[in-house]
Design a protein around this nucleic acid. Structure first.
Length: 297
RNA sequence: GGUGCGAUGGCGAAAUGGUAACGCGGUGGUCUGCAAAACCUCUAUGCGCGGGUUCGAUUCCCGCUCGCACCU
Protein backbone atom coordinates (compact mmCIF):
# COMPACT_ATOMS: atom_id res chain seq x y z
CA UNK A 1 0.00 0.00 0.00
CA UNK A 2 2.12 2.76 -1.17
CA UNK A 3 1.12 6.33 -1.03
CA UNK A 4 2.90 7.73 -3.98
CA UNK A 5 2.05 11.32 -3.79
CA UNK A 6 5.26 13.34 -3.94
CA UNK A 7 5.93 15.15 -0.69
CA UNK A 8 5.64 18.89 -0.56
CA UNK A 9 9.07 20.45 -0.94
CA UNK A 10 10.31 22.87 1.69
CA UNK A 11 13.45 24.92 2.08
CA UNK A 12 14.37 25.67 5.68
CA UNK A 13 16.96 28.26 6.56
CA UNK A 14 18.33 28.31 10.08
CA UNK A 15 21.25 29.92 11.88
CA UNK A 16 22.08 32.05 14.88
CA UNK A 17 20.79 35.58 15.22
CA UNK A 18 22.50 38.11 12.94
CA UNK A 19 23.90 35.43 10.66
CA UNK A 20 22.07 36.79 7.62
CA UNK A 21 19.16 34.37 7.26
CA UNK A 22 16.56 36.87 6.11
CA UNK A 23 18.56 38.11 3.16
CA UNK A 24 19.44 34.60 2.12
CA UNK A 25 15.78 33.65 2.25
CA UNK A 26 14.89 36.48 -0.13
CA UNK A 27 17.71 35.48 -2.44
CA UNK A 28 16.59 31.87 -2.54
CA UNK A 29 12.96 32.88 -2.98
CA UNK A 30 13.81 34.97 -6.01
CA UNK A 31 15.93 32.27 -7.50
CA UNK A 32 13.57 29.33 -7.19
CA UNK A 33 10.27 31.15 -6.98
CA UNK A 34 9.18 31.02 -3.40
CA UNK A 35 7.58 32.79 -0.48
CA UNK A 36 8.94 33.04 3.01
CA UNK A 37 7.47 31.81 6.28
CA UNK A 38 9.24 33.66 9.07
CA UNK A 39 9.65 31.52 12.14
CA UNK A 40 10.51 33.98 14.82
CA UNK A 41 8.75 34.03 18.16
CA UNK A 42 9.15 37.78 18.55
CA UNK A 43 8.64 39.08 15.03
CA UNK A 44 5.11 37.76 15.05
CA UNK A 45 4.19 40.67 17.29
CA UNK A 46 3.06 44.01 15.96
CA UNK A 47 5.01 46.97 17.26
CA UNK A 48 8.10 44.96 18.06
CA UNK A 49 10.29 46.05 15.18
CA UNK A 50 13.64 47.56 16.05
CA UNK A 51 14.30 45.25 18.97
CA UNK A 52 13.56 42.17 16.89
CA UNK A 53 15.52 43.30 13.88
CA UNK A 54 12.39 42.82 11.82
CA UNK A 55 12.74 43.10 8.06
CA UNK A 56 11.42 46.43 6.79
CA UNK A 57 8.63 45.21 4.57
CA UNK A 58 5.10 46.57 4.19
CA UNK A 59 1.61 45.24 3.91
CA UNK A 60 0.15 45.72 0.46
CA UNK A 61 -3.48 46.53 -0.29
CA UNK A 62 -4.39 42.86 -0.16
CA UNK A 63 -2.89 42.52 3.30
CA UNK A 64 0.20 40.64 2.23
CA UNK A 65 3.46 41.49 3.95
CA UNK A 66 5.95 42.16 1.16
CA UNK A 67 9.71 42.59 1.45
CA UNK A 68 11.94 43.06 -1.58
CA UNK A 69 9.20 41.72 -3.76
CA UNK A 70 8.77 38.52 -1.80
CA UNK A 71 5.76 37.71 0.32
CA UNK A 72 6.51 36.96 3.96
CA UNK A 73 4.22 35.06 6.26
CA UNK A 74 4.51 35.07 10.03
CA UNK A 75 5.29 38.76 10.50
CA UNK A 76 2.99 41.05 12.51
CA UNK A 77 0.34 38.42 13.00
CA UNK A 78 -0.25 38.86 16.73
CA UNK A 79 -0.77 41.46 19.39
CA UNK A 80 2.00 41.66 21.97
CA UNK A 81 -0.60 42.06 24.69
CA UNK A 82 -1.44 38.42 24.22
CA UNK A 83 0.64 35.30 24.34
CA UNK A 84 1.26 33.66 20.99
CA UNK A 85 2.31 30.04 21.39
CA UNK A 86 4.04 27.29 19.41
CA UNK A 87 0.76 25.50 18.89
CA UNK A 88 -0.78 28.57 17.33
CA UNK A 89 2.23 29.05 15.12
CA UNK A 90 2.15 25.42 14.10
CA UNK A 91 -1.38 25.78 12.82
CA UNK A 92 -0.60 29.10 11.14
CA UNK A 93 2.59 27.77 9.58
CA UNK A 94 1.01 24.72 8.03
CA UNK A 95 -1.74 26.80 6.55
CA UNK A 96 0.84 29.21 5.17
CA UNK A 97 2.77 26.36 3.59
CA UNK A 98 -0.35 25.06 1.90
CA UNK A 99 -1.19 28.55 0.76
CA UNK A 100 2.23 29.12 -0.76
CA UNK A 101 2.17 25.75 -2.47
CA UNK A 102 -1.21 26.52 -3.98
CA UNK A 103 0.37 29.50 -5.70
CA UNK A 104 2.92 27.21 -7.26
CA UNK A 105 5.70 28.58 -5.09
CA UNK A 106 8.19 26.88 -2.81
CA UNK A 107 7.72 27.60 0.88
CA UNK A 108 10.92 28.85 2.50
CA UNK A 109 10.91 28.69 6.26
CA UNK A 110 13.37 31.07 7.80
CA UNK A 111 13.87 31.97 11.41
CA UNK A 112 15.70 31.71 14.66
CA UNK A 113 13.08 29.98 16.75
CA UNK A 114 14.07 26.36 16.37
CA UNK A 115 11.21 24.87 18.33
CA UNK A 116 8.65 26.64 16.19
CA UNK A 117 10.22 25.35 12.99
CA UNK A 118 10.27 21.79 14.28
CA UNK A 119 6.65 22.11 15.34
CA UNK A 120 5.42 22.88 11.84
CA UNK A 121 7.85 20.70 9.97
CA UNK A 122 7.54 17.51 12.00
CA UNK A 123 4.43 15.55 12.81
CA UNK A 124 4.25 16.87 16.32
CA UNK A 125 0.65 16.95 17.40
CA UNK A 126 0.57 18.80 20.67
CA UNK A 127 -2.05 17.63 23.14
CA UNK A 128 -5.22 19.66 22.86
CA UNK A 129 -4.86 21.15 26.27
CA UNK A 130 -4.82 24.90 26.37
CA UNK A 131 -2.77 26.86 28.86
CA UNK A 132 -4.86 27.28 31.98
CA UNK A 133 -3.87 30.38 33.90
CA UNK A 134 -5.76 29.43 37.02
CA UNK A 135 -4.28 25.98 37.22
CA UNK A 136 -0.83 27.32 36.47
CA UNK A 137 -1.04 29.82 39.24
CA UNK A 138 -1.92 27.04 41.63
CA UNK A 139 0.92 24.85 40.42
CA UNK A 140 3.39 27.70 40.59
CA UNK A 141 3.10 27.69 44.34
CA UNK A 142 4.54 24.20 44.52
CA UNK A 143 8.23 23.53 44.63
CA UNK A 144 9.75 21.72 41.68
CA UNK A 145 10.29 18.71 43.93
CA UNK A 146 6.57 18.61 44.75
CA UNK A 147 5.59 19.03 41.12
CA UNK A 148 7.97 16.30 40.09
CA UNK A 149 6.64 13.93 42.74
CA UNK A 150 3.09 14.56 41.54
CA UNK A 151 4.05 13.96 37.93
CA UNK A 152 5.77 10.73 38.86
CA UNK A 153 2.49 9.51 40.29
CA UNK A 154 0.31 10.70 37.42
CA UNK A 155 2.59 10.05 34.45
CA UNK A 156 5.73 8.08 35.30
CA UNK A 157 6.80 7.90 31.66
CA UNK A 158 6.88 11.65 31.19
CA UNK A 159 8.49 12.05 34.60
CA UNK A 160 11.25 9.70 33.51
CA UNK A 161 12.67 12.05 30.91
CA UNK A 162 11.47 15.49 31.94
CA UNK A 163 13.77 18.19 33.26
CA UNK A 164 12.94 17.65 36.91
CA UNK A 165 14.08 21.08 38.08
CA UNK A 166 12.42 23.06 35.32
CA UNK A 167 9.17 24.61 36.56
CA UNK A 168 7.96 25.54 33.04
CA UNK A 169 8.12 22.00 31.80
CA UNK A 170 6.73 20.48 34.97
CA UNK A 171 3.78 22.84 35.00
CA UNK A 172 2.88 22.13 31.40
CA UNK A 173 3.20 18.38 31.85
CA UNK A 174 0.97 18.47 34.91
CA UNK A 175 -1.47 20.71 33.10
CA UNK A 176 -1.81 18.18 30.30
CA UNK A 177 -2.17 15.20 32.58
CA UNK A 178 -4.55 16.83 35.03
CA UNK A 179 -6.95 18.27 32.49
CA UNK A 180 -6.92 15.48 29.91
CA UNK A 181 -6.64 12.67 32.42
CA UNK A 182 -4.21 11.03 30.05
CA UNK A 183 -0.43 10.81 29.96
CA UNK A 184 1.55 13.24 27.88
CA UNK A 185 1.65 11.82 24.34
CA UNK A 186 4.95 11.21 22.63
CA UNK A 187 5.90 13.48 19.76
CA UNK A 188 6.98 12.09 16.43
CA UNK A 189 10.14 13.19 14.70
CA UNK A 190 9.04 12.31 11.19
CA UNK A 191 8.13 14.91 8.63
CA UNK A 192 5.30 14.98 6.08
CA UNK A 193 7.43 17.30 3.98
CA UNK A 194 10.46 16.95 1.76
CA UNK A 195 12.77 19.23 3.72
CA UNK A 196 15.91 20.88 2.49
CA UNK A 197 17.76 22.25 5.50
CA UNK A 198 20.26 25.06 5.03
CA UNK A 199 22.23 26.55 7.90
CA UNK A 200 24.37 29.65 8.15
CA UNK A 201 26.99 29.67 10.84
CA UNK A 202 29.62 32.36 10.42
CA UNK A 203 32.91 32.11 12.31
CA UNK A 204 32.66 33.43 15.88
CA UNK A 205 34.60 36.63 15.22
CA UNK A 206 32.48 37.51 12.22
CA UNK A 207 29.25 36.85 14.05
CA UNK A 208 30.36 38.91 17.03
CA UNK A 209 31.14 41.82 14.80
CA UNK A 210 27.76 41.59 13.12
CA UNK A 211 25.96 41.41 16.43
CA UNK A 212 27.84 44.39 17.73
CA UNK A 213 27.09 46.46 14.63
CA UNK A 214 23.43 45.55 14.63
CA UNK A 215 23.13 46.43 18.28
CA UNK A 216 24.64 49.85 17.83
CA UNK A 217 22.33 50.45 14.91
CA UNK A 218 19.30 49.46 16.95
CA UNK A 219 20.27 51.83 19.71
CA UNK A 220 20.55 54.62 17.16
CA UNK A 221 17.21 53.73 15.63
CA UNK A 222 15.42 54.30 18.91
CA UNK A 223 15.15 50.89 20.46
CA UNK A 224 14.59 52.37 23.91
CA UNK A 225 11.76 54.53 22.62
CA UNK A 226 10.12 51.51 21.06
CA UNK A 227 10.14 49.69 24.36
CA UNK A 228 8.90 52.75 26.22
CA UNK A 229 6.06 53.03 23.73
CA UNK A 230 5.08 49.39 24.19
CA UNK A 231 4.92 49.96 27.92
CA UNK A 232 2.79 53.04 27.40
CA UNK A 233 0.46 50.96 25.27
CA UNK A 234 -0.14 48.62 28.15
CA UNK A 235 2.60 46.01 28.21
CA UNK A 236 3.76 45.55 31.78
CA UNK A 237 7.42 45.72 32.59
CA UNK A 238 7.24 42.11 33.62
CA UNK A 239 5.87 41.12 30.25
CA UNK A 240 8.57 43.11 28.47
CA UNK A 241 11.26 41.53 30.59
CA UNK A 242 9.93 38.13 29.65
CA UNK A 243 10.40 38.83 25.97
CA UNK A 244 14.12 38.74 26.65
CA UNK A 245 17.10 40.42 25.01
CA UNK A 246 16.41 44.01 23.89
CA UNK A 247 12.97 44.12 25.50
CA UNK A 248 14.26 42.76 28.76
CA UNK A 249 17.30 44.98 29.12
CA UNK A 250 15.64 48.10 27.80
CA UNK A 251 12.74 47.55 30.19
CA UNK A 252 15.15 47.15 33.08
CA UNK A 253 16.91 50.35 32.11
CA UNK A 254 13.72 52.29 31.67
CA UNK A 255 12.76 51.25 35.18
CA UNK A 256 16.25 52.30 36.22
CA UNK A 257 16.86 49.03 37.87
CA UNK A 258 20.28 49.31 36.35
CA UNK A 259 22.87 51.99 36.94
CA UNK A 260 21.95 55.16 35.10
CA UNK A 261 25.46 56.43 34.50
CA UNK A 262 26.91 55.36 31.22
CA UNK A 263 23.58 53.70 30.62
CA UNK A 264 23.95 53.19 26.90
CA UNK A 265 27.36 51.67 27.31
CA UNK A 266 26.15 49.30 29.95
CA UNK A 267 23.05 48.44 27.97
CA UNK A 268 25.19 47.66 24.97
CA UNK A 269 27.54 45.45 26.91
CA UNK A 270 24.78 43.48 28.57
CA UNK A 271 22.91 43.00 25.34
CA UNK A 272 26.00 42.00 23.44
CA UNK A 273 26.76 39.30 25.96
CA UNK A 274 23.14 38.14 26.02
CA UNK A 275 23.15 37.81 22.25
CA UNK A 276 26.30 35.73 22.24
CA UNK A 277 24.75 33.45 24.84
CA UNK A 278 21.60 33.25 22.77
CA UNK A 279 23.45 32.20 19.63
CA UNK A 280 25.02 29.38 21.60
CA UNK A 281 21.65 28.12 22.77
CA UNK A 282 20.36 28.29 19.22
CA UNK A 283 23.29 26.31 17.90
CA UNK A 284 22.91 23.69 20.60
CA UNK A 285 19.49 22.94 19.20
CA UNK A 286 20.56 22.70 15.57
CA UNK A 287 23.79 20.81 16.17
CA UNK A 288 21.85 17.61 16.63
CA UNK A 289 19.91 18.03 13.40
CA UNK A 290 22.08 16.07 11.01
CA UNK A 291 20.05 17.12 7.96
CA UNK A 292 21.31 20.67 8.00
CA UNK A 293 23.80 21.66 5.33
CA UNK A 294 25.99 24.26 6.98
CA UNK A 295 27.80 27.09 5.29
CA UNK A 296 29.84 29.95 6.69
CA UNK A 297 27.81 32.70 5.08
C1' G B 1 57.79 56.89 60.17
C1' G B 2 53.52 54.87 63.37
C1' U B 3 48.74 52.36 64.07
C1' G B 4 44.62 49.63 62.21
C1' C B 5 42.25 46.77 58.43
C1' G B 6 42.59 43.85 54.18
C1' A B 7 44.99 40.40 50.55
C1' U B 8 40.74 33.70 48.31
C1' G B 9 39.32 31.18 40.78
C1' G B 10 38.59 35.79 34.81
C1' C B 11 35.37 39.23 38.15
C1' G B 12 32.45 39.82 42.80
C1' A B 13 32.30 37.24 47.37
C1' A B 14 31.78 33.55 51.87
C1' A B 15 33.51 30.04 55.34
C1' U B 16 36.84 27.02 58.01
C1' G B 17 42.74 23.96 62.38
C1' G B 18 41.26 18.46 58.72
C1' U B 19 41.90 19.80 52.86
C1' A B 20 37.82 25.77 49.52
C1' A B 21 29.91 28.15 49.79
C1' C B 22 27.53 31.08 46.38
C1' G B 23 26.68 34.78 42.27
C1' C B 24 28.49 36.55 37.47
C1' G B 25 31.34 35.04 33.42
C1' G B 26 33.10 30.75 30.58
C1' U B 27 31.98 25.60 28.88
C1' G B 28 29.09 21.57 27.19
C1' G B 29 24.03 20.18 27.15
C1' U B 30 18.29 19.76 27.66
C1' C B 31 13.92 21.10 24.92
C1' U B 32 5.84 18.25 24.25
C1' G B 33 1.19 25.39 24.04
C1' C B 34 6.04 31.36 28.07
C1' A B 35 11.28 28.87 23.73
C1' A B 36 14.90 35.90 22.72
C1' A B 37 11.99 31.71 27.80
C1' A B 38 13.03 28.05 31.43
C1' C B 39 16.42 24.39 33.12
C1' C B 40 20.90 21.05 33.78
C1' U B 41 26.53 19.73 33.68
C1' C B 42 31.46 21.06 34.28
C1' U B 43 34.63 25.27 35.65
C1' A B 44 40.57 27.19 42.33
C1' U B 45 45.45 20.21 43.92
C1' G B 46 44.26 26.14 45.34
C1' C B 47 43.39 30.70 49.51
C1' G B 48 49.77 37.57 48.36
C1' C B 49 55.31 35.87 49.54
C1' G B 50 58.81 33.49 53.19
C1' G B 51 59.37 31.13 57.76
C1' G B 52 57.29 28.87 62.35
C1' U B 53 53.65 26.09 65.61
C1' U B 54 50.82 21.44 64.72
C1' C B 55 49.66 14.65 63.24
C1' G B 56 47.59 18.34 59.84
C1' A B 57 47.26 25.62 58.16
C1' U B 58 43.95 28.92 53.41
C1' U B 59 42.52 29.20 58.62
C1' C B 60 47.09 30.30 64.54
C1' C B 61 52.16 33.02 65.28
C1' C B 62 56.45 35.99 63.17
C1' G B 63 58.55 38.65 59.15
C1' C B 64 58.06 40.75 54.19
C1' U B 65 55.33 42.87 49.95
C1' C B 66 51.17 45.38 48.16
C1' G B 67 46.37 48.10 48.88
C1' C B 68 43.07 51.08 51.88
C1' A B 69 42.15 54.18 56.16
C1' C B 70 43.78 57.06 60.03
C1' C B 71 47.82 59.40 62.97
C1' U B 72 52.58 62.24 63.50
Amino acid sequence: MTQKQPLQKLVIIVGPTSSGKSELAVKVAKKIGGAVLSSDSRQVYRGMDIGTGKITGKFDVRGRYMYKGIRHYGIDIASPTRQYSVAQFQKYGRKAIADIAKQGLVPIICGGTAQWIDAVVYEQEFPKVRPNAVLRKKLERLSTAEMFATLQKLDPDRAADIDRYNPHRLIRALEIVMTSGKPVPRLKQTSPYDCKWLGINPPAEVLQKKISQRLKQRLRQGMLKEVALLHKKGLSWKRLEQFGLEYRFCALHLQSKLATDEMTKELFEQLFRAHIQYTKRQMTWWKRNKNIQWSLE
